[in-house]
């Protein structure tokens, strides 16, 4: 999943879901995605930035996730960065994680080996 994404990553400009945008459903892409708005559902991408104005509910599956906004649900990512402005409810499945002082996290942060993330698309628990 990610090996393919890495190739495509360079070819496409990053997508942006603007502040006023509200998406309900599945968001899938191979490159970088920045969310400023609201997403209810699932996000699949190579790299996901949830900005300080974002509000996401559901699952985020990515190689790298950067959280600054409100999130509730599950994150499945090799590398997770949580900024101090973030408010997270739920679970963060990660291999490496960094949490800034001031971030609010309510939930669990289970560590997983890198191999866990390679098969993520097949796992039943990540289905919408």
């Amino acid at each position: 999943m990610f090996a393919r994404a890495q190739q495509i990553h360079a070819e496409h400009p990053p997508s942006r879901l603007g502040r006023a945008l509200r998406v309900r459903g599945l968001v899938e892409m191979d490159g970088e995605l920045t969310v400023d708005g609201t997403v209810l559902g699932r996000i699949n991408a190579y790299r996901v930035n949830l900005s300080s104005e974002s509000h996401v509910e559901g699952d985020v599956v990515a190689n790298e996730v950067h959280v600054e906004g409100r999130f509730s649900g599950r994150i499945f990512a090799l590398h997770v960065t949580v900024e101090s402005s973030a408010t997270i409810t739920g679970r963060i499945f990660h291999n490496t994680v960094s949490v800034a002082k001031g971030a609010r996290i309510d939930g669990r942060m289970p560590w997983r080996p890198p191999s866990y993330f390679l098969t993520l698309t097949q796992l039943p628990e990540t289905r919408l």
Binding site: P13, S15, R16, G18, V23, G25, E28, M29, G31, G37
Partner: peptide, 28 residues
């Protein structure tokens, strides 16, 4: 584009509803 504009780039696929009070540019 400006910050309010949403860009659905070529590599992006969305299944579901999109709603915005601003502009959307869809390439995907």
């Amino acid at each position: 584009p400006a910050k309010g504009v949403s860009v659905i780039s070529r590599a992006l696929k969305i299944t579901g509803q999109l709603e915005s009070s601003e502009d959307i540019q869809i390439e995907g």
